[in-house]
Design a protein around this nucleic acid. Structure first.
Length: 1042
RNA sequence: GCCCGGGUGGUGGAAUGGUAGACACGCAGGACUUAAAAUCCUGUGGCCGUUGAGGCCGUACGGGUUCGAGUCCCGUCUCGGGCACCA
C-alpha cells in the first residue's frame, strides 16, 4: 500500500465519524482530564494557519491522556456574538445569525479537516438562546446578590434588606458605591419602594451607573478599558472619547482582593499573573482629609501611598471632574477654571495620551488647611489627576513625586525637602524612602518604617485620615449599544430596573428592521416591535435596550461543555462533581486582563453561591504563541515615462526574494515591460496603471509560459483614486474590458487580480491610509537611501534587501497574521498539498508552542519526508507489507524505549517540537537497523498517534486491530532497555574537553579515576602539574583538575 | 518611565550546572536518471593547520560564583510583549 495522505485522511475521518470515536461520556470509573481551548470567534475570514496551533497542541495532549487511560474532555464551541457579524449585517443587510451560522460551518469544516478530536455533540454557541438563557440567569444572580466583606463572600440581597430594616447600614461592611450614605433603619423603612430599590443598586453586584465610559462614536457603542488600545478601539482602530453615560456595571472591584489571592493557587504563566496583579493594582496607603479654608462644611479627601511625605505637601490638586471644583472655585477664578474644564472635556482620549508630558492646570483660588501644620495650601485643578482613581484628588509633594515636581516647577510652587537623603531637588523629584525626616514636625528624625504608623495613628485620632487599601481595578462596564449580543433581562418601571422573572428566560433577541441606532440615538434594540416579554399590561414600563458585552458569554462557558444540553440548569450537579474544573486551559496571552480576569470573577461569584466546586476554574493555563505573517514590501524606482515612485507592501507573505523580471526577447516584442514587473519563484507582480493596461498581455504570456501566477497591481494616480474611488474602479473595469478581456474571463488559474487602489479607497479613509499595511506611497528621490527609507513609518520594522545596481529594494516585515494586513495563509491549501498529519506535525515542529514565530512553509518537506520514511518501515516502495513477528534486538528495543521515555516526558512538559524530533530519531534509527518487527513498530504507531492520527489509525488497522488507535495503551518504557554495558565518559582537563573514555557500566568512581589518569591524552594536558582533584560525575563526565 | 520575557550556526530551533548546536530546513558533493523531479548516501559553527595529527575561538557585551556556566549572580547593550499622569 502506498502512502497517500489525502486518501487515508478522508477514510479515517469518515470512520471516526461513523463509529463516534470522539464521543465523550461522563465515565465515573475513569479519572477525568478536562482540556479547554479558548473558543474562537467565527470570523468571516475563516481559519488561518495561526489559529490551529493551540488546537493541535491540545489535541495531542488530549489524545495522549486518553491513551494513558483518562476520560478526556476537550470540547470546542463558538464565541459567536460580536461586532463583525453586526457590521456585516449593517453593510449587507444579512441577519447576523445567518452570517454567523455560515462562518461556524466553515470553521467546523476546517477544524474537522485537521483531524482534531473534538466531540461536536458538545459544541456550544454563545448566541444560542439555549445557551444565553444561562448567561442571563447568571446576570440575574449577580443582580440579586451583594458582596459582604465580613462574610468574605457574596450574599443574597435579601440579607441586606433584612439588616436595613432592623439596623440600617451603619454596621454593614459591604462592597458599594463610594458615595453610599449611611442610613438608619427608620430612614430605610420610611423609603418608598422606588427609593429602596435605588438604594439597593448601590450594593448589587451588577447595577446601572452613571459613569465616564469609553464611547466610540464610529462603532456607536461603549467599550471596556481592555477593548481600547492607545486611545482607539481595538477593533477597527476608531477614535474613542470619554463620555458620561448610564451603563450597566459589574462590581468586580468587590472581588479585587479575592482575585489577587486566587492567583497564588493556580499554575498560570507568571507573565499573565503579573499582568493581572498590575491590572488589579493593589496599593496600600492612607486617606487624608484637608479642610477647605473658610468653608467648615467642605474638605478635600486625598489618597496617598506616601503619607510619610505629608510635610512636603505644598499644594492640592483636584481632577477636573471632581465635584468639589464647582463648590470651591473663587469667583474671580471662575472664568479661568471653566475655560480649563471645557478645554479638558474637548480633548479626546488620544490627544490626552499623546500629550502626557505637557503640564496643564489652573488655580481655583481656594486653599486647603494642612492637617498637621495648619499652613494654607493652594488648590489647583489639573488633568494629570484622574477622577477614577483614589478620591480624584491628591496632596502634591513636589520633592518626592516627579509629576508634582513638574507641576510645581511650571507653576512656581515651593518644593520642600523632607528627607535628609533627598538630592538634586532642583533637577528632579527624589522619591527615596531612605534617610531621616526633616522639616517634618512630629516625624522629624524618624525613618520611613517608624513614620508611617505614627502618622496614621495621629490622623486617625484627630479624625483627619485613616489607612486605606486602594485598587486600580475599576468596575466593568457591562452594556453595549449593539444588537448582536445577549439581551439584558431587565425592564424598567419609574426609572427603577427590575429583573425578569426567571421562568421568562431566555429573553430572546427580538427582530429589528435595521441594525442601527434609532433616530433618537437609542441602541438598535429600541427598534424592536415584538418583545416577547411584557411585564404587565396595565403599568407603564420600558425595556432595557442595551445588550451584554462580548465577554459575558465567555465568562462561564467551560461549565456548559460539561452538560451542554441541560435545559433545567446551566450544568447538572453530577456533571460538575465529575468534571469539576479545567485541568489544562490553552489560549492566547492577549486575553490576560480581559476574559481571563472577568471569567475568574464570575467563577468566584458562582463559587460563593455554592454552584460550582472550585474557586479557580482553570488550574493550569498555557499560552500559545502567535503564528505571524510575513508582509513583503517592494520598492521600485522611477521609470522613464512612469512618473511615480512606488512603495508597495505586498500581500503574499511568501514573497521574499524579488528579482526584476527579465523577459526574454523571443517572448516579448517590447522590452520595456522588463522594468515593470517583479518576479519570485511562483509569482509575477505587474505594476500598471489603466493607461498601460494592454501591455500586461506580454507579461501574462511570459508568466504563463513560466508556470507562474500573475498578480496585477493597479496603481492609479493616488490622489485621484483616494478622492474618487468609484470612478477609479470604473476606469479600471472599463480598461480591462476593452483592452485586456482575458483578465475578466473566468477560469484562468494563473492569474490573480487585485485592485489595490480600489480596495484601499473603498474601505478606508485617506486618514487611515497611512496606517494601512497594504500600502502604496509615492516617495521622493532620496528615499532610495536606505537609512532614509527606514525613517518612514511603514519601514521602521522592515528588513531590507538591496537589489542589483541598487535600483530597488525588497523587504519584509513580520507581523500579526490578519485579514486586514493581507498576509493570511489559509491552512486548507497546506492541508490539500501535504495532508493534515503533515500540517499538524509541522506546526508543532516549528518551535515551542508558547513562542510566536512567522509562518514559513520552507521546512514542511522535512516532515513530509519523515512521514514517508515512517510509512516505509511498514511498506516497501512497491507497497508490500514488511512487518514480521520476529524477536526484536536489544538495539531496536533501546531505540524504542529511549523514544518512549523522551516523548512521554516531553508531552508531559508540553514540549511538542522535541517530541517530533524524537519520533524522527526513532524512525531514522529503525530504518538504519532495517527493523520491521511488530514488537517495535506497534508501540511506535501508538507513539505517533497523537501527532499524526490518520496515519497511525491506518497503520494500526493494517497491524490487524479492529478498534481505534485512540483506545490503545500508551507504551511504558523500561529502564532495563535503556542501560548499556558500557558508558562513554567525556573527559575534561581543567574544565576543557580533551577526549572520551568508555568503561564498563559497573566501574566504580575510583576505577574510572585510575583509568582516566592513565590515559595518554590526559597526561599530555596535565603535563608537569600535579593532579589536585578528579571529579567523576556518574554516567556523564570526568574532570581532572591540575 | 515602570513591569515581564527573550538574545545560541545561513534559517527554525535542541541542551535537569556536566561533551553547545539534537532534530529539521538550506547549502555543497556524490549515487540513480538521456534529463529533471523524487529518492538515497556523505559533509556542513568560525578560524588556523592537516589531508585518517591536531589546535584555537565560539551561546549579545563586560565582570563574578564554580572543578565545570548557554544555564546561576551583578552591570551594560539590544529586541519583543504588557502597563502607563494610578498619587
Amino acid at each position: 500500500m502506498e502512502y497517500v495522505p489525502r486518501a487515508i485522511e478522508k477514510k479515517w475521518k469518515d470512520w471516526w465519524e461513523k463509529h463516534q470515536v470522539y464521543r465523550v461520556t461522563d465515565c465515573l470509573d475513569k479519572p477525568k482530564f478536562y482540556i479547554l481551548n479558548m473558543f474562537p470567534y467565527p470570523s468571516g475570514a475563516g481559519l488561518h494557519v495561526g489559529h490551529p496551533l493551540g488546537y493541535i497542541a491540545s489535541d495531542i495532549l488530549g489524545r495522549y491522556k486518553r491513551l494513558c487511560g483518562f476520560n478526556v474532555l476537550n470540547p470546542m464551541g463558538f464565541d459567536a456574538f460580536g461586532l463583525p457579524a453586526e457590521q456585516y449585517a449593517i453593510e449587507m443587510g444579512i441577519h447576523p445569525a445567518v452570517s454567523t451560522e455560515e462562518n461556524i460551518r466553515r470553521y467546523r469544516r476546517q477544524l474537522e479537516d485537521l483531524g482534531l478530536s473534538f466531540d461536536w455533540s458538545r459544541e456550544i454557541r454563545t448566541c444560542d438562546p439555549k445557551y444565553y438563557k444561562w448567561t442571563q440567569w447568571i446576570f440575574s444572580l449577580l443582580f440579586r446578590h451583594y458582596y459582604d466583606y465580613d462574610a468574605q463572600k457574596a450574599l443574597p440581597i435579601t440579607h441586606l434588606i433584612a439588616r436595613l430594616e432592623k439596623e440600617g447600614n451603619a454596621q454593614v461592611n459591604a462592597a458599594c458605591d463610594s458615595d453610599t450614605p449611611r442610613i438608619s433603619a427608620e430612614e430605610w423603612n420610611a423609603y418608598s419602594e422606588e427609593q429602596q430599590q435605588l438604594f439597593l443598586l448601590q450594593y448589587r453586584l451588577t447595577f446601572p451607573e452613571e459613569t465616564y465610559v469609553n464611547w466610540c462614536p464610529a462603532l456607536g457603542t461603549v467599550l471596556s478599558n481592555d477593548e481600547v488600545k492607545d486611545g482607539v478601539s481595538e477593533r477597527g482602530g476608531y477614535p474613542v472619547e470619554r463620555r458620561r453615560m448610564k451603563q450597566w456595571s459589574m462590581r468586580i472591584t468587590a472581588y479585587a482582593e479575592r482575585l489577587l489571592e486566587g492567583l497564588e493557587e493556580i499554575d498560570w504563566p507568571e507573565a499573565i499573573k503579573e499582568q493581572q496583579r498590575n491590572w488589579i493594582g493593589r496599593s496600600v496607603g492612607a486617606i487624608v482629609r484637608f479642610p477647605v479654608e473658610g468653608r467648615s462644611d467642605l474638605s478635600v479627601e486625598v489618597f496617598t501611598t506616601r503619607v510619610d511625605t505629608i510635610y512636603g505637601a505644598t499644594f492640592i490638586v483636584l481632577a477636573p471632574e471632581h465635584e468639589l471644583v464647582a463648590q470651591i472655585t473663587a469667583p474671580k477664578q471662575w472664568t479661568e477654571v471653566q475655560n480649563y474644564l471645557k478645554w479638558v472635556a474637548s480633548r479626546s482620549e488620544r490627544e490626552r495620551m499623546a500629550e502626557v508630558k505637557r503640564v496643564t492646570g489652573v488655580f481655583t483660588g481656594a486653599h486647603a488647611v494642612h492637617p498637621l501644620t495648619g499652613s494654607l495650601l493652594p488648590i489647583y485643578v489639573a488633568d494629570y489627576v484622574l477622577v477614577g482613581y483614589g478620591t480624584g484628588a491628591i496632596m502634591a509633594v513636589p520633592s518626592g513625586d516627579q509629576r508634582d515636581w513638574n507641576f510645581a516647577t511650571a507653576f512656581r510652587l515651593p518644593i520642600v525637602p523632607i528627607l535628609d537623603r533627598q538630592k538634586n531637588l532642583d533637577q528632579a523629584a527624589d522619591p527615596t524612602k531612605e534617610g531621616r525626616y526633616i522639616n517634618s514636625g512630629i516625624i522629624n528624625g524618624l525613618t520611613y518604617e517608624e513614620a508611617v504608623p505614627k502618622l496614621i495613628e495621629w490622623l486617625q485620632q484627630h479624625q483627619l485620615g485613616r489607612a486605606r487599601i486602594q485598587y486600580k481595578l475599576r468596575n466593568a462596564v457591562f452594556s453595549r449599544q449593539r444588537y448582536w449580543g445577549e439581551p439584558i433581562p431587565i425592564y424598567w418601571k419609574n426609572s427603577v430596573p427590575y429583573l425578569l422573572p426567571e421562568e421568562e428566560l431566555p429573553l430572546v433577541l427580538p427582530e429589528i428592521d435595521k441594525y442601527l441606532p434609532t433616530e433618537t440615538g437609542e441602541p438598535p434594540l429600541a427598534r424592536a416591535q415584538q418583545w416577547r416579554y411584557r411585564p404587565s399590561p396595565e403599568e407603564s414600563y420600558e425595556y432595557e435596550y442595551n445588550t451584554m458585552p462580548g465577554w459575558a458569554g465567555s465568562s462561564w462557558y467551560w461549565y456548559r461543555y460539561m452538560d451542554p444540553h441541560n435545559d433545567q440548569a446551566f450544568c447538572s450537579p453530577e456533571a460538575l462533581q465529575y468534571w469539576r474544573c479545567v485541568d489544562y486551559y490553552i489560549g492566547g496571552a492577549e486575553h490576560a486582563v480581559g476574559h481571563l480576569l472577568y471569567s475568574r470573577f464570575w467563577n468566584h461569584f458562582l463559587y460563593d453561591l455554592g454552584l460550582v466546586p472550585e474557586r479557580e476554574y482553570a488550574k493550569k493555563l498555557f499560552n500559545q504563541g502567535m503564528i505571524q505573517g510575513r508582509s513583503s514590501i517592494i520598492y521600485r524606482a522611477r521609470e522613464s515615462f512612469y512618473e511615480e515612485y512606488l512603495w508597495i507592501k505586498v500581500l503574499q507573505p511568501y514573497l521574499q526574494e524579488f528579482e526584476p523580471m527579465r523577459i526574454p526577447h523571443n517572448r516579448a516584442e517590447e522590452s520595456f515591460t522588463y522594468d515593470f514587473a517583479f518576479a519570485t519563484n511562483d509569482l509575477v507582480i505587474e505594476v500598471v496603471s489603466h493607461k498601460h493596461i494592454d501591455k500586461i498581455e506580454t507579461v501574462r504570456q511570459t508568466a504563463e509560459a513560466d508556470g507562474k501566477r500573475l498578480l496585477i497591481l493597479f496603481t492609479e494616480e493616488l490622489a485621484a483614486s483616494i478622492n474618487e474611488p468609484e470612478r477609479t474602479a470604473e476606469r479600471i473595469r472599463q480598461a480591462l474590458q476593452s483592452r485586456a478581456p482575458f483578465l475578466m474571463a473566468e477560469g484562468i488559474p494563473a492569474i490573480e487580480q487585485l485592485f489595490v487602489s480600489y480596495e484601499l479607497t473603498q474601505k478606508y479613509s485617506p486618514e487611515a491610509f497611512s496606517r494601512l499595511h497594504v500600502d502604496i506611497s509615492l516617495v521622493d528621490d532620496d528615499v532610495l537611501d536606505l537609512e532614509k527609507a527606514r525613517q518612514r513609518p511603514m519601514f521602521q520594522k522592515a528588513n531590507f534587501k538591496v537589489g542589483p545596481e541598487g535600483r530597488f529594494l525588497c523587504a519584509y516585515e513580520i507581523e500579526k497574521m490578519s485579514k486586514s494586513k493581507y498576509n493570511v495563509i489559509n491552512p486548507d491549501e497546506v492541508i490539500e498539498q501535504y495532508g493534515a498529519d503533515c500540517f499538524r506535525m509541522y506546526e508543532m515542529f516549528l518551535g515551542p508552542i508558547e513562542a510566536s514565530k512567522p509562518w514559513d512553509v520552507k521546512g514542511i518537506t522535512g516532515i513530509q519526508g519523515f512521514l514517508r520514511r515512517f510509512w516505509s518501515l511498514f511498506f516497501d516502495a512497491e507497497g508490500t507489507w514488511l512487518v514480521r513477528n520476529d524477536e526484536p534486538s536489544r538495539q531496536e528495543l533501546r531505540a524504542l524505549h529511549t523514544a518512549i521515555k523522551k516523548i512521554t516526558e516531553d508531552i508531559e512538559r508540553f514540549s511538542l517540537n522535541t517530541c517530533v524530533s524524537h519520533l524522527m530519531i526513532l524512525t531514522n534509527e529503525l530504518r538504519g537497523l532495517k527493523c520491521h518487527k511488530r514488537a517495535v513498530l506497534e508501540p511506535a504507531v501508538v507513539l505517533i498517534a497523537p501527532f499524526a492520527p490518520h496515519l497511525a489509525e491506518e497503520l494500526w488497522h493494517q497491524l490487524g486491530h479492529e478498534s481505534t488507535v485512540c483506545d490503545a495503551h500508551w507504551p511504558r518504557w523500561e529502564e532495563r532497555y535503556l542501560t548499556s554495558e558500557h558508558i562513554t565518559y567525556a573527559v575534561q582537563v581543567n574544565g576543557k574537553l580533551r577526549g572520551n573514555i568508555t568503561v564498563e557500566a559497573s566501574a566504580s568512581p575510583a576505577e574510572i579515576e585510575a583509568l582516566v589518569l592513565s590515559q595518554e591524552f590526559v597526561r599530555r594536558f596535565v603535563g608537569e602539574k600535579a593532579v589536585r582533584r578528579v571529579i567523576v560525575v556518574p554516567g556523564r563526565i570526568v574532570n581532572v583538575v591540575a
